[in-house]
């Protein structure tokens, strides 16, 4: 079963340039944060549900950052529900991209290893 003769073309051959691939990932990410997130279920998540049903939900305290302009994935001062969530989501994506991307650039090995 493990013969390789039926795979004549290299599976490693890139179909998209690296730049275009990264751009495509970014576009998908922004669509998820700014569009798909609007369709998210508003029901409590698994932990919140378990906390409520087993009786420790009341011990939750409001976060010290609950006054943030983007608290709960909404944008303060924006009444339009979709726009409010989309702005918060896109701001969050941008901040995460810069922080994690910058961190990776700092810790990476310089030069391109092939393995």
């Amino acid at each position: 079963m493990s013969t390789a003769t039926d795979t004549p073309t290299s599976p490693a051959r890139p179909r998209l340039s690296r730049g275009r691939f990264f751009a495509a990932v970014l576009v998908v990410t922004l669509l998820v944060a700014g569009g798909l997130s609007y369709l998210a279920s508003a029901h409590p998540d698994g932990l919140e549900h378990v906390a409520a049903t087993t009786g420790f939900g009341d011990t939750a305290r409001d976060s010290a950052t609950s006054g943030s302009p983007f608290a709960d994935y909404g944008t303060a001062g924006v009444d339009h529900a979709w726009l409010s969530g989309a702005i918060a989501g896109i701001v969050g994506v941008a901040v995460v991209l810069v922080l994690a991307g910058g961190l990776a650039l700092v810790v990476r090995r310089r030069g391109s290893a092939q393995d």
Binding site: R18, F22, V25, L26, V28, T29, L30, V32, A33, L36, S37, L39, A40, S41, A42, H43, P44, D45, G46, H49, Y73, G85, G89, G92, V93, A94, V96, L97, V98, L99, A100, G101, G102, L103, A104, L105, R108, R109, R110, G111, S112, A113
Partner: peptide, 30 residues
């Protein structure tokens, strides 16, 4: 390395975005 480092920022950003999308799993829970 130089080639793969940009993936980290993109993957983190995607995870952030995907975590916004709660899917229902039944009984009023997501």
């Amino acid at each position: 390395d130089d080639r793969t480092a940009p993936m980290v920022g993109l993957v983190a950003a995607f995870v952030f975005a995907a975590q916004m999308v709660n899917f229902p799993v039944g009984a009023g829970t997501s």
